[in-house]
Computed example of a mutant assay.
Amino acid sequence: MTAQTDLKGKTLFITGGSRGIGLAIAERAARDGANVVIAAKTAEPHPKLEGTIYTAAAAIEKAGGQALPLVLDVRDADAIDAAVARAAQHFGGLDICVNNASAIDLASSEQIEVKRFDLIQQINMRGTFLVSRACVPHLRRSVNPHVLTLSPPLTLRPDWFAHHLPYTLSKYGMSMVTLGMAEEFKSDGVAFNALWPRTTVATAAIKHVLGGDALMNRSRLPAIMADAAYAIFLRDARAFTGNFLLDDDVLREAGVTDFAPYRHDPAAELQIDIFVAPDGQPIP
């Protein structure tokens, strides 16, 4: 088949999409008239973090799409199966799965608490596996099915493991799910790809966990990941699978030449993200 031209009428199942990159991807698809399932834990307002599944649903509908907000903890296998089944029944199928839900903890091997270690493995790697597996039977019936996981390229640099081994294991686990399922379901025509930002992205995690306003200023906006994801969804699933992609590479290939609108602060020097090796070239 040839690449599609928009996402009108397509149904996306997005985990952890009540804010940040997940919500940006949802709103970008909604502008085409897509159906978006927001499956996340945040049903009540958080004291420090903006957004709930209901405010996300309102934003999706304002952008022009149809929304279904579902409370979901991706650590609960039965709840995942139920949410995916409900989403497919509600919209008549699924076309795209986005594994966006993720927990971060950059503690060292000695510093991290066991419960935090377990949490990031369960949400990141295990959740990605369970959500992807639950979506596959429905995606097989789609014309151009995609699974997109927000995880890094599988570059096995020892220093990236040494600095924050528990988190690296969890994120690389997500990428290994992508690698394995891309091959496992290739004959079914279901695409599995991974997308990662070249620079830090201005999200709640950046502001409240990693670097505050200073790092926010050195980050790009979530829109860059949303636009890159959108470009991937338009690709032919049978011909484009098993790829580990950086956001600006995807957009450059799609014809984008001006990256200035994606900057949080046009005057600040951009910060290369974790798991990305600087190549010596200036970041656009």
Rank of each mutant, 00 (worst) to 15 (best):
A56E: 02
R133V: 00
H90D: 10
L68W: 00
L72D: 09
P153N: 09
S175G: 13
V84W: 10
V74C: 10
P166D: 13
S142T: 00
R75E: 03
I80H: 08
T178R: 00
V98L: 14
M174H: 05
S142K: 00
T52C: 09
R86E: 15
E184D: 14
G127T: 00
V131T: 10
G92S: 11
S151M: 08
I60P: 03
H46Q: 07
L72M: 10
A88C: 11
F91E: 08
P152G: 04
L165R: 01
H138N: 09
H146F: 07
R116P: 06
A58N: 07
G93M: 10
G93Y: 02
H90S: 13
Y172H: 14
S132P: 13
F185I: 11
P158N: 12
D95T: 03
T168M: 06
G92R: 07
F161K: 11
T155C: 06
I104H: 11
W160K: 05
N124K: 01
P45T: 06
I53D: 11
Y54W: 05
D73P: 05
R141T: 11
A79R: 02
L130A: 12
E44Q: 10
S170D: 02
T149Y: 03
K171M: 12
F91T: 02
R140Q: 15
R157T: 05
V136R: 09
G173Q: 11
L106V: 12
R140F: 06
A101S: 10
P166M: 09
N124H: 03
L169D: 12
A134R: 03
R116D: 14
D78G: 06
S170G: 06
D95A: 05
L94Q: 05
D105Y: 04
P137A: 10
R141N: 14
L139P: 03
K115G: 02
G173M: 09
D81V: 06
L139Y: 05
G64A: 12
A57I: 06
Y167D: 14
I60D: 10
A67V: 02
V143Q: 11
S151C: 15
L130F: 14
L130S: 07
Q89N: 15
G51Q: 00
R141W: 01
A103Q: 07
R133E: 14
M176G: 01
D105N: 15
P145G: 07
T168Q: 04
K115C: 12
A43K: 09
T155P: 01
S132C: 11
T178G: 06
L119H: 04
W160V: 12
S132W: 02
A85C: 10
A67P: 03
E61P: 04
E184L: 08
V147I: 12
T155E: 15
A77P: 08
D76M: 02
V71H: 05
T55W: 04
H146K: 07
I123D: 06
Q122T: 01
F185V: 11
G64H: 05
G51N: 00
I96R: 13
L49I: 15
I53G: 11
I53K: 04
D81W: 01
A103E: 08
V147N: 10
F91C: 09
R157N: 14
V143I: 02
D159T: 12
N144M: 13
P152H: 02
V143A: 14
P158M: 11
A103T: 08
V131N: 03
W160N: 13
V143E: 15
